[in-house]
């Protein structure tokens, strides 16, 4: 299976471990991600001002170029990119006259017919590959590893673009169980991490991260597993440095471990909170020399 791939700026600039792991894991599952050519930033935050058209040009341009490049579907890893692209796409389908207006103001060089779609990588894994195939690819089950899946906002809300039930999501739980891990759940899995308040009010983020990690720890979790690079940044950098800080994994990293892939591809040392001690404790990687 081949699918067009939209990485997004954050993945390239500050979450390369997620991308490296994703490419390796999907290759192992027989999915080839083909990076789009000359893609632009998704626009970051979906503009709620529906008539401020310049704010919708970036995501629309991604779809327009995808179509120019002969694809109808694109997969992305970043939750923010996914959410922004998916919402812009709905906008483009519901209000094609706005696309026409954009085209006119841009000298006629931007046109998009609403005929493309964006998929989150977790949708590809759940709906195309399937958890049964993922389970069958596991070489080193994450037996005994207790993880707390954290969803945050962008995968789930608003519900017209969410990939799972906004109140009781299951995709990360099912994926982790397919890898053999033990899942710890709690009410704060879907609470916003504080997002960009890390820039101006990081105490808000720190408080939310503390509450969520406390809930995870009380439930017996040893690690957080998540998908969003912004959530990852917040959980990885705003937990106070201590022995009890929970390591934060991208789901792709844990898939790579469970698949027995070369750990050097998985970016396991690019986190603030070390991942290796926990993996070694569970005998999931060997102490030295296993990092390729």
């Amino acid at each position: 299976m081949q699918i067009a791939y939209y990485p997004g700026c954050t993945i390239k600039a500050s979450a390369s471990q997620h991308e490296g792991a994703a490419l390796a894991v999907l290759r192992a599952l027989g999915v080839e991600l083909r990076e789009m050519e000359e893609w632009n930033c998704c626009g970051v935050v979906h503009s709620l001002t529906s008539d401020n058209l310049i704010r919708h040009m970036a995501p629309v341009r991604v779809f327009a170029r995808l179509r120019e490049q002969g694809a109808n579907e694109v997969a992305t890893l970043c939750d923010m990119c996914f959410n922004t692209l998916a919402r812009a796409n709905i906008h483009a389908r519901q209000q094609p006259e706005q696309i026409v207006a954009m085209s006119v103001t841009s000298g006629g060089e931007l046109s998009y017919d609403g005929g493309a779609s964006v998929q989150h990588m977790l949708q590809i894994l759940r709906d195309r590959v399937g958890f049964a195939k993922i389970r069958a690819r596991v070489r080193r089950p994450l037996r005994g590893l207790r993880v707390y899946p954290y969803y945050g906002c962008k995968l789930l809300r608003p519900s017209e673009v969410g990939i799972d039930d906004p109140e009781t999501p299951a995709v990360l739980r099912d994926l982790m169980q397919a890898l053999g891990a033990t899942v710890v759940e709690g009410s704060l899995q879907t609470q916003c991490c504080g997002a960009y308040h890390v820039v101006d009010h990081d105490e808000i983020v720190a408080e939310r991260v503390a509450a969520t990690t406390a809930q995870a720890s009380v439930g017996g979790a040893e690690a957080i597993v998540l998908s969003c690079p912004l959530c990852h940044y917040n959980f990885d950098t705003l937990q106070p440095a201590s022995d009890t800080a929970l390591p934060v994994f991208y789901y792709t990293q844990l898939m790579g471990i469970a698949f027995g892939l070369e750990p050097g591809q998985l970016g396991l040392e690019e986190q603030q909170i070390a991942l290796l001690p926990l993996l070694q404790q569970h005998n999931l990687i060997h102490a030295k020399g296993d990092l390729g």
Binding site: S14, S16, C41, G43, M57
Partner: peptide
């Protein structure tokens, strides 16, 4: 580093991909 250009020119994060510059 991957973010070196962004650090020197943080305003590039404001690009809305309108393509006016290209035109």
């Amino acid at each position: 580093r991957p973010n070196t250009l962004l650090q020197h020119f943080p305003e590039i994060a404001g690009c809305v991909a309108c393509n006016t510059c290209t035109r």
